[in-house]
Amino acid sequence: MQKHNRHRIRNLSLLVVSAVVLWLLHGLAETALRDTARLSGWLLFGMIVFLAAYNVRKKLPFLPLGSSAAWLQFHIYVGLLTAVVFGLHIGWRLPNGGLETLLASLYGIVFVSGVAGLALSRSLAKRLTTRGNEVMFERIPVYRKRIASEVETIVLTSLDTSESTAIAQFYAERLRPYFSVTRNFWHHLLQSNRPRFALLSEMKAYHRFLNDDERLVMLDLEDRVAAKDDLDYQHTLQATLKYWLFVHIPITYALVAFAVFHLMLVSSFAGGAW
């Protein structure tokens, strides 16, 4: 852990130094009357292409291009550095041209989603180990289906052994909808157990209407509810870890596409500054 922290401090220091150096170089280039927008623009474009290449790199694991972990570190810190280059490129003010505004918006979305993704991957990965078993995201529907089947079997069995339909009614009204799909996405994301405790409390309150056998069945169901809740928790966090990329990556490609248009425009309309 200490080693990890040392690396993080080192990388952050490098990031700050790089940002300061870039800022100084930009100032010197301005002093030399260089076309700083062009210089910073090409640098920014190169950085964005490099960042976008990370996704390609993940799809080409057989190429000797360094470890994915190293790429991720570069991706994170170069990504953060783009904010400085972008600020220098636009002169630290909001653009008001049509295409420029679109580009800035796209960059903003990509950057913010990237930072958000970084924060999520840092926090959610830890939380995933705190509840339930670690399961593959693709298998979660299978397990949910299995639990739902088990619950249905338990309830049907209880009907054979008991004259009361209390459990069956409770199942029909409250549990079957609960087990049919993933529930309480936002509560799980925000680390709130209120729906889980509410349902479990409701089930415990039901105990006084049940006989001993039925109470055992209900306890069994409560275990299933907890298992399903843990599964939903896993699903929520894993889905979040996967679906933030549905914003980050597609918008990155859109950004690259519009950046190419932008490059074409500024090249053809350039005023000749050197």
Partner: peptide, 17 residues
């Protein structure tokens, strides 16, 4: 680092300034 515009360019584009 960056040179001077007059060192490398006989004519200066208006956009230089």
């Amino acid at each position: 680092i960056f040179g001077s515009p007059t060192e490398t360019h006989a004519a200066l584009a208006c956009a230089t300034c």
